[in-house]
């Protein structure tokens, strides 16, 4: 189809659309489509490849893979119930800690408690936490955190041992140090995105709150927090997603033990830690089982993110005009 150009005569600045303009426009559009499709295809391809490799294990172990908690390569008995428990329990605990601290930090850094320049420095420091390599945090956990935690854990176990969460002593690696390190790793995500949510609150909402005669605390808790709630929720979903997949530090700190316990001091295991610690010495059968576990981890992570997106779409509270 040939395109028509208007004959506007001489003396005007406007001219027809040149062929080169049309081509570059089309090329740009094609590049955008390719990039977008590439991302989606990559995700599908990875899921497919892992799924294919895990297929023999899926056929052998079926659904009981999710309901048993033995991981024995010699007997070829594989079940990941303990790892699923450990993954969700450790991530949830880390999220509670990171949520409380992350939102507090966001409030502290956005509500004029500090001069602007100082707040900016603090913000950068919090973001730098995300730059610490996982393995370094793992080493810090082993050499610093566990020795510090031990006397506290012993005290709590001796005094409040009747409570489920303190029912065992801390043998060394265990859930508590893993959760604390995990919380440190998730904190920057929660803090950064919550800060964005607070900064997006329009000035007129602040005026409305203070104009009603709120103190700063009342303005924050009664107006700003509800207004920023969907952004804060998004930060928690992303933080949770990050916690679920975190590997290295957990493999070093959690104790790699296939048991299900409420105790904060018991060794446990997570899916990601299981993959990292078992893969190097795994035979072909165990490798298939590990890939099945990888599929489970991918599924959980996707589920959490999709659920988060859906909940946000339905609540959609931050509809500020």
């Amino acid at each position: 189809m040939t395109m028509i150009n208007f004959d506007t005569g001489d003396g005007t600045v406007t001219h027809g659309i040149r062929a080169s303009e049309r081509i570059s426009d089309r090329l740009f559009r094609a590049a955008c489509y390719t990039a977008a499709a590439g991302v989606i295809l990559l995700l599908v391809y990875i899921a497919f490849q892992i799924g294919v490799k895990a297929l023999p294990a899926m056929q052998d172990y079926g659904f009981s893979f999710f309901t048993t908690q033995t991981w024995n390569a010699q007997k070829q008995e594989f079940g990941i119930l303990a790892e699923i428990w450990g993954t969700l329990y450790s991530s949830l605990l880390a999220l509670v800690i990171a949520g409380v601290f992350g939102v507090s930090v966001a409030i502290f850094l956005t509500q004029d408690y500090l001069p602007r320049w100082l707040a900016q420095i603090f913000r950068t420091i919090v973001e730098l936490l995300a730059a610490i390599p996982s393995v370094v945090l793992g080493l810090w956990g082993i050499y610093v955190l566990i020795p510090v935690l031990r006397p506290i854990a012993d005290f709590l176990h001796d005094t409040f041992g009747f409570l489920g969460i303190f029912s065992t002593a801390l043998p060394g690696p265990g859930l508590a140090p893993a959760v604390i390190v995990l919380a440190i790793m998730v904190l920057p995500t929660v803090a950064a995105i919550s800060q964005d949510a607070f900064q997006l609150i329009p000035g007129k909402v602040k005026e409305a709150a203070y104009g009603m005669g709120t103190t700063r605390r009342e303005a924050i808790f009664k107006v700003f927090l509800p207004t920023a709630s969907s952004g804060i929720f998004a930060s928690l979903v992303l933080g949770f997603g990050r916690a679920l997949g975190e590997t290295m530090a957990l493999a070093m700190l959690i104790g790699n033990s296939n048991q299900i316990s409420w105790s904060l001091f018991a060794p446990a295991n997570t899916l990601a830690a299981l993959l990292a610690s078992s893969w190097p010495e795994a035979g072909p059968i165990e490798q298939q089982a590990l890939l099945y576990a990888a599929v489970a981890l991918l599924g959980i992570t996707l589920l959490v993110n999709v659920a988060g997106v859906l909940i946000m779409a339905f609540s959609n509270k931050q509809q500020v005009s």
Binding site: P202, E207, T215
Partner: peptide
């Protein structure tokens, strides 16, 4: 804070809170 509780204000841009109509007035 006390001053603003006794001298109310209506602003240039309408600025209701992101909460129910009832809770806005009850605030």
């Amino acid at each position: 804070v006390l001053v603003r509780r006794n001298i109310g204000m209506v602003f240039q841009q309408p600025n209701p809170f992101s909460m129910s109509i009832f809770e806005n007035v009850a605030f």
